[in-house]
Design a protein around this nucleic acid. Structure first.
Lengths: 114, 114
DNA sequence: TGGTAAGTTCGACGTACGTCGAACCCGCCC
DNA sequence: GGGCGGGTTCGACGTACGTCGAACTTACCA
């Protein structure tokens, strides 16, 4: 009752897209870049956390999710009881035109040298 | 060996453009981003080191120049006795299409908010 | 032949960052 | 109800990074 003032308490607020420096720092870490890449592959929809990383512990991954959210690159939601992240493609493209797509392309070419 | 083995000893070799991670890291530092911005403003030609930074010591600036060179973003030359840096626009654009221009644009808009 | 100015290199130092395990929370479903 | 799997938070720890001043090199100039 008195505990929750609003029906949906937003414990994980969506941040505005941060400045170039912070966004570049967020994207510069290999683990985070991979998360963003998978999010992009997922077609822009909310994706369960567990599908987004390999090789690091849950706590480390959670920390990276937080960093990405604070840079405004992703937002959190809960779908069917699972915590999910979504890439804010449109918002990021508007704030920092071209950066996300260029970085994603470069990352893809690194992975698939073709 | 007191003498140089080759007539033109390249003490400061030009590096190939590094991978996305290293380039993003290089660009993520505010001091380095400013250096790159000024280099870009200079029209792509070699620019004396002293014109490229404010607020940090010479040794710190020299360290940042080295980081940029190792990421393949810049190269060093000597013009009229002065040490100069040049932005490798074409090479970076070919290796990582769109990234440099997008970052530069975002940095400019940060500095000149329209 | 000094002297000065510009750059680089070399430690040193403090802070920020990535990483982990443990503890905790929350929904599910046996 | 009790256990379980997925996430988050909280220290703690080690390393990487940005910063500086001092020392050194080189080039230029009086």
């Amino acid at each position: 009752m008195s505990t929750s003032p609003s029906p949906e308490a937003p414990a994980y607020p969506t941040h505005p897209v941060a400045d170039v420096h912070q966004v570049l720092s967020a994207l510069a870490d290999p683990v985070r870049l991979e998360i963003v890449r998978r999010l992009s592959r997922a077609g822009g929809g909310p994706t369960p956390c567990a599908h987004l990383y390999d090789g690091v512990s849950k706590s480390t991954a959670s920390h990276h999710f937080k960093t990405l959210r604070e840079a405004g690159l992703t937002e959190r939601s809960v779908e069917a009881g699972q915590s999910c992240q979504r890439l804010r493609v449109a918002e990021v493209e508007q704030a920092l035109p071209g950066i996300l797509s260029a970085v994603l392309r470069a990352a893809d070419e690194l992975t698939e040298p073709q």
